[in-house]
C-alpha cells in the first residue's frame, strides 16, 4: 500500500456499473458463454503485460461447476481492473495476474460474485482488496487508514469463518463419535428396507 492509487469511489462506482456480460456464465465443461481466460488475457495486455500462455491460463478455465463462482468473480475483478487508471499506469499486469489467479479463491467460496456488484459494502471490500494486491491505497488515505478499513471489512467475515471452523471441528468429532457408537447398537425397525 506504499503508493497512492485512484479514488475509491471511482472504482466502487465502476463496480456498480459492471455490465451483465461480465457476470454471464463462464465457459465450464462445454457450457457457458464467457471464456474467462480470454477476458483475463485481454486485460493483461491492456495493463501493459503479455497475454496468458496455456499454463498461465489454466487457473481461469476448468470443468466442474464448483469453479463457477470463482470464475465469475474473476470476471468481475477483471472489469474492475479494466479501469483506465490501471491501464494508464502500464505497470500492474504482473500483480493483477497473480491476484486474479490465486487471490480470490477464499472469497469466492463464501460470497456469490453478484454481491460484489450489488452490495455497497462488498464493492468496497473488493476494491480495497484489489488495491492492496497491487500495492496501492485509495487516494487521500494514509497507509494506516487503508489497512484499518480493509481489515475491518474482511475481519468480520474472517472472524465468522474462524468461529465456524472451530464449531465445525467440534461438530465433526461429535458426529463421528455418535456414528461409531450407534453403528454398534441396534437401529429401529422399518416396514420396508431400501
Amino acid at each position: 500500500m506504499s503508493s497512492e492509487g485512484p479514488v475509491l469511489e471511482a472504482l466502487t462506482g465502476r463496480l456498480a456499473e459492471c455490465p451483465a456480460d461480465f457476470l454471464a456464465e463462464p465457459r465450464l465443461g462445454g457450457r457457458g458463454v464467457v471464456h474467462t481466460d480470454a477476458v483475463v488475457s485481454d486485460l493483461l495486455v491492456d495493463l501493459g503485460g503479455a497475454g496468458l500462455d496455456r499454463d498461465a491460463a489454466r487457473p481461469f478455465a476448468g470443468e466442474g461447476k464448483e469453479r463457477r463462482n470463482l470464475l465469475r468473480l474473476v470476471q468481475v475483478a477483471s472489469w474492475l481492473l479494466g479501469d483506465p487508471w490501471f491501464a494508464g499506469a502500464r505497470r500492474f499486469a504482473v500483480p493483477a495476474s497473480q491476484w486474479l489467479a490465486s487471490g480470490l479463491d477464499e472469497t469466492a467460496g463464501l460470497v456469490a460474485a453478484d454481491r460484489f456488484v450489488t452490495d455497497p459494502e462488498r464493492r468496497e471490500e473488493l476494491v480495497r482488496a484489489c488495491l492492496a494486491a497491487l500495492g496501492l491505497r485509495p487516494e487521500g488515505e494514509s497507509e494506516a487508514q487503508a489497512q484499518d478499513r480493509l481489515t475491518a471489512l474482511s475481519s468480520v467475515e474472517r472472524d465468522r469463518v474462524v468461529r465456524a471452523t472451530q464449531a465445525q471441528l467440534e461438530h465433526a468429532r461429535k458426529v463421528r463419535e455418535a456414528m461409531r457408537r450407534k453403528a454398534a447398537e441396534e437401529a429401529a425397525a422399518r416396514e420396508i428396507r431400501e
Partner: peptide, 9 residues
C-alpha cells in the same frame, strides 16, 4: 454452505 455462497440466487 460450500455450494450456496452468500447472495447466491
Amino acid at each position: 454452505h460450500e455450494r450456496v455462497p452468500e447472495g447466491f440466487e
